[in-house]
Design a protein around this nucleic acid. Structure first.
Length: 276
DNA sequence: GGTCCGACCTGGCAGC
DNA sequence: TGCTGCCAGGTCGGAC
């Protein structure tokens, strides 16, 4: 599922292709791919030039001419695919198509149709941005800041880390992996994560995200619902996962069988032997 | 204000 | 082989 490393991989690919291109035609095939009025959205992107492609948390942010911002979120199964002029036909589950003046296309594909996009004013995007938490791969993300924030919450640390208003961009896979690396139990209350564990967790979050970005993210399986980047390539980080999707396998650190529990209606994988 | 939980959505897969 | 029902999970909104 697209989390920070997967979205970053897609953004890096789109950044090579999109800046400077003008949208000649926009077609929304499934209305719920757009938040709000489809007609207004199509009017806003048609004729606009993409000036920059950025990532914020799990959002893909395309800066448009006219100080507008095209924001998309892939949710579970969304994908952006760039198709060069004369390239492949539209993939299955295409939800929106954007034709550029030079014949290239940008296609939004989403089998489970939870992904969505919208065009915002620069001011509206700034407000949305301000509500998101710190970027974990930025200098602003420090162990001290993390410790201070932990102190105010009795939530389980795993659920706390998934809250995008705290640390932006983390999702289920990388939270689970970071907790394993830091030897912190996912059930421990945030306010009971002391300085030693907080520093380990801070380092583990940076390490696991950096490693996953280097491997172009994680693809869990095959099929249309699994992550691929903007050119259709899968991520290669799956083999480096230590606990996620490894229920019953021995922990690489202590040999205890990896356990799966449910927290906040989501699967959590952890080692009951060495995560405390 | 913080926390919890259902809804959204549909492909994949296990079980029968 | 075909059908049924559960599972996956990021975000939002409502309830407590």
């Amino acid at each position: 599922m697209p989390e920070l490393p997967e979205v970053e991989t897609i953004v890096r690919r789109l950044r090579r292709e999109l800046p400077g291109r003008q949208v000649a035609r926009a077609e929304v095939l499934r209305p719920n791919a757009v938040r709000g009025s489809v007609r207004r959205f199509v009017t806003a992107v048609t004729g606009a030039t993409i000036e920059a492609v950025e990532r914020r948390a799990k959002f893909i942010v395309m800066r448009l001419s006219g100080r507008r911002v095209w924001v998309s979120h892939l949710r579970m199964t969304g994908k952006w695919q760039f198709i060069a002029r004369g390239g492949a036909a539209l993939p299955g589950y295409t939800r929106a198509v954007f034709d550029f003046e030079d014949g290239a296309r940008l296609v939004f594909v989403d089998p489970r149709t939870l992904g969505e996009m919208e065009v915002l004013s620069a001011g509206a995007w700034r407000a949305r941005d301000a509500a998101l938490g710190v970027e974990p791969l930025s200098p602003a993300f420090t162990a001290e800041e993390l410790m201070t924030r932990f102190a105010g919450s009795r939530r389980a640390i795993k659920e706390w880390l998934l809250d995008q208003t705290h640390v932006a961009g983390l999702g289920n896979i990388y939270v689970v992996e970071a907790l394993w690396r830091a030897r912190v139990s996912p059930r421990r209350r945030a306010c009971h994560v002391g300085p030693v564990r907080a520093r380990r967790l801070h380092a583990a979050i940076i390490d696991v995200l950096t490693a996953a970005v280097a491997k172009q993210g994680t693809t869990l399986g095959k099929g249309v619902t699994h992550y691929t980047d903007a050119t259709g390539d899968p991520g290669a980080f799956y083999d480096f996962l230590q606990v996620y999707d490894r229920e019953g396998e021995p922990c690489a650190r202590c040999g205890t069988a990896i356990r799966r529990i449910t927290q906040g209606q989501r699967s959590t994988y952890y080692c009951p032997g060495c995560q405390r």
